[in-house]
Design a protein around this nucleic acid. Structure first.
Lengths: 206, 206
DNA sequence: CCTACCGATCGGTAGG
DNA sequence: CCTACCGATCGGTAGG
């Protein structure tokens, strides 16, 4: 009557489960918020017991930090890496990053719109480790844009006298604002208008 | 032993209380979110019993709708009305509206940043009456900007060929994006950079 | 506008 | 990774 032994979960299986949980958590959090998402609903969505999620991640805050990490990986894979592969440093890459972001919003890579715009809006005025981690990722993105803008100015691809920090700031807030407006009104026209704005700001088709 | 009769609340007193509750609710919601805000915490903050808030507003959804109304009144009083009073229709008024918004973010009229940017980000992908009301207010703001942009183009204050819808879209997303970045990093420099962006977009100091 | 409740859900823990 | 719990808090209602 010996049944097959209940398989003891391996380390790799645990990692796979953790990745599946944080992936689902990032999707849900883009809709319900990173704080609005509850461990109970996440357990339902993944088919696990609530206490299993606690066992795998510790506290809710630790789960949130792991979720931010997973969302950052998605963002890099969907927006950053393709732009770096598609265009050389400078103006072309800056355009590719902006268009990559807009495509990612358009395709609803996260069902509730950009995870980080949502998290930044939600946690902006609530101090803590989760806030700080979101701020850190946002700053990395802003720095990336600024670096490419600097290269573009230094190489003469953008008019001398262009302030790279000011230009990259404007692009960043246009992208974030567009995500909000596009999701709120379920309006892809906003993404199209943002494409025009970005191209004009970078001097394409002028 | 007749004590002074317990004063029966008048209609006016009820209205005053309702206004005090929705005002506090809008402040708290700008930090914790319009859904994250609980009736229990709102009761604590106002010194009322939870059930009193239910008695005055009905359901949580009705309270949220009343809170949006109160926040809209604040926005009009702090941003829209001063700009309408300070500048004639057209380009100057468009600038006054944008600078009024940036000043309102800078002054933290709502402690967690613009109530409507927060609510739009939070509710963008969650259908319902509250979402629809936030979307309606956002559209009124966008329409206001577009109207002034149209006047500015028609009167020749902005270059012929300027698309008023595109221009007002760009201004709107810059303002929304700036609110998020400025609150997230507690950085008033973002507001200053947005002022530069708005002035350049409108051809001031060019 | 209050006290006194309701069932449901929250994050988290014990113990295996 | 599970069952079985914990106290706290959620939105809401009865009844005054």
């Amino acid at each position: 009557m010996a049944t097959s032994p209940s398989p003891r979960p391996t380390r790799a299986a645990g990692d796979r489960n953790r990745a599946r949980i944080t992936g689902t958590a990032a999707e849900l959090a883009s809709i319900e918020g990173i704080d609005g998402l509850s461990i109970g609903r996440l357990a339902d969505a993944t088919g696990l017991a609530k206490s299993s999620i606690h066992a795998l991640f510790g506290s809710k805050e630790d789960l949130q930090l792991a979720t931010i990490d997973a969302a950052r990986d998605s963002f890099i894979a969907e927006v950053v890496a393709p732009a770096l592969a598609a265009a050389p440093p400078g103006r072309d890459r800056l355009l590719a990053l902006c268009e990559g972001f807009l495509s990612y919003v358009e395709r609803r890579v996260f069902p509730g719109g950009c995870f980080f715009v949502g998290a930044a809006a939600e946690l902006g005025s609530r101090p803590g480790r989760v806030h700080d981690e979101v701020a850190r990722v946002q700053r990395q993105w802003a720095d990336l844009l600024e670096r490419e803008a600097t290269t573009a100015v230094d190489s003469g691809e953008l008019p001398a006298g262009t302030d790279p920090q000011q230009l990259s700031f404007e692009l960043g807030v246009i992208l974030a604002g567009t995500n909000i407006v596009s999701v709120l009104h379920d309006d892809l026209g906003a993404v199209e208008r943002a494409r025009s704005a970005v191209r004009r700001a970078l001097g394409y088709g002028a």
